[in-house]
Design a protein around this nucleic acid. Structure first.
Lengths: 132, 132
DNA sequence: ATAATTCCTATCGAAAAGATAGGAATTTAT
DNA sequence: ATAAATTCCTATCTTTTCGATAGGAATTAT
C-alpha cells in the first residue's frame, strides 16, 4: 500500500477546504466523512507543514494557505503518510542494512521511489476537485 | 510500503536458486539469511505459482522452472505480496466504496497502480543477480 | 461567563506483518 | 526395513502499524 486511509483523508480534507473560504473541523470532517478525532490528528500535521492556517476560539477554523493547484500530491502525502518509501531499504531504516553497499536490488528500489515520487508530483489538489 | 520483507525475501530466495541447479530449503534459507520457517511459507507460494519446482524426500529441494531473465519482479511480487495495489480503493475492497462511480481521485490511483506495475515489469530476476 | 473552537497527550483495538511450532507425508540411502 | 532428510500442511504467536477514540487545556468571539 502506497497511500493509506490517513493520506486519503488528508487529501479529501484539503479539497474540502478548497471549496470554502474557511470552515471548522467539525463541519469539514462531517462533510468529508472523516472521523472527527482522526481528522484532528491529521489536521495537526497539515498545520505543522504549513499547508493550512488555523484560527482558534469560537468562529475559528481552518483555511488553505495556497491555491489548490499549488499543492502536489507528493508533498501532501509526504507529510501525512508514515512513509512513502517503496521498501524499508530506502526508508528510515535504510542505514541499518549491512548489505546496502553491495546489494544489487537497492538501486531498483531507489528508482521505484523516484518513479512514484515523480508520479505524485505531477498531480495537484486541483486534479482531485469534483468537476462541474 | 510497496514491497515488504516477504516480497524481498522471495526475490532473494529466487536469485539464490538461480545460482545453483537445485538446493534444499535449509541451505537456501541459511545462505540468503531468511528465517527457515518463514522461508517455508514463502516457498510454498512460489511453488503454487509455478515459479519453482519441488522434489520431496531426502535429496529433495527446489529449482527454478525458467531462466532468471524470464521472471519479472511484477509477477513474483504479485504472488508473494498481500497486495501490490497503491490504495485500498484499487485493491480487494475496491467494490466496497460507494463513492467509486464519481470519485475524482480514483483515476489517479489507477494510473499509479499502472505506473508501479509497468516499472516492476521492466525488471527481471537477472537484474538482481550479484555482478562480477 | 459561556460556548465553540483549536491544540495536546495519551491510549485503545483491530489488522497486518514477521516469525515460529509441530508433525504428517515422501523419498533416498543404508 | 529402517533411518534420515526433506517438502508439505495447519495452526499459532508476537510485534508493529493503522485507524480511531478520550479527555481536557488553551483560546477567542459573543
Amino acid at each position: 500500500m502506497i497511500v493509506s486511509t490517513r493520506g486519503r483523508y488528508a487529501l479529501r480534507m484539503m479539497t474540502g477546504l478548497a471549496e470554502c473560504d474557511r470552515t471548522s473541523l467539525r463541519e469539514l470532517a462531517a462533510a468529508q466523512n472523516v472521523p472527527f478525532k482522526y481528522a484532528e490528528s491529521i489536521m495537526s500535521s497539515l498545520v505543522k507543514a504549513g499547508f493550512v492556517e488555523s484560527a482558534r476560539g469560537k468562529k475559528g477554523g481552518y483555511r488553505l494557505t495556497r491555491a489548490p493547484a499549488e499543492y502536489t500530491l507528493a508533498e501532501v502525502l509526504r507529510e501525512t503518510e508514515t512513509s512513502l518509501a517503496a521498501t524499508d531499504c530506502t526508508g528510515r531504516k535504510e542505514q541499518a542494512c549491512p548489505r546496502a553497499a553491495t546489494c544489487p536490488t537497492l538501486p531498483v528500489w531507489r528508482a521505484l521511489d523516484e518513479t512514484v515520487n515523480d508520479f505524485l508530483s505531477r498531480y495537484t489538489l486541483l486534479d482531485l476537485m469534483p468537476k462541474e
